[in-house]
């Protein structure tokens, strides 16, 4: 019985891996099938999101904050052209037309640039605010220390025994 109980989790894990593979295959097949219908959109998005992809590849932050910043605004920059594509009909010709327009790139890259600008500016600003706060706090704390020393003498900051302090040692 005990052996059976020990073997049970192994079987469950094996079943889970089988299910995962099956899901991946189903999603892959679904994506492959749908790709036939949204290929132009996919191409447009893939090309438009190049700044995000580059950021993703170069971002070494665990939180991926830079990628999130650039990606969010980059996706907003791509979004009007995807809608435009859907409005005009999803064809490679439409994709090429959109991509050949300079405004397309100004919008897409400008949006990504704004994201990059936020990544550059906001941390500096927040750090400056936080440090200012720390400095103010430090000043208050140091003033408190001075008050304590005034009231109790310099030995308040030592570990000398009370008996020794009272003996005047």
């Amino acid at each position: 019985m005990a052996q059976k109980k020990k073997d049970a989790p192994k079987k469950d894990a094996h079943k889970g891996r089988k299910k995962g593979k099956l899901g991946f295959i189903i999603i892959g097949l679904t994506f492959g099938a749908s790709l036939l219908f949204i290929m132009p959109t996919f191409v447009l998005v893939m090309v438009g999101m190049i700044p995000t992809i580059v950021s993703l590849l170069t971002d070494d932050d665990e939180e991926r904050s830079t990628t999130i910043c650039i990606g969010a605004l980059n996706s907003v920059g791509v979004m009007p052209f995807v809608i435009d594509l859907w409005m005009k009909g999803q064809t490679i010709q439409s994709v090429l037309t959109i991509m050949m327009q300079s405004t397309t790139w100004v919008v897409i890259l400008g949006a990504a640039g704004i994201g990059k600008l936020i990544v550059f500016a906001v941390p500096q600003a927040t750090a400056a605010i936080a440090i200012g706060h720390v400095e103010r706090r430090l000043k208050i704390l140091r003033d408190n220390l001075t008050s304590l020393k005034d009231a109790w003498g310099p030995d308040v900051g030592t570990t000398k025994s009370i008996q020794n302090l009272r003996q005047g040692d």
Partner: peptide, 22 residues
Amino acid sequence: AARTIGYPAAATLSSLLAIMLA
């Protein structure tokens, strides 16, 4: 300080801006 406070703030700000624009 910038990394721990600033970058998450920047990400949050970008996300909110992106949602609004979208």
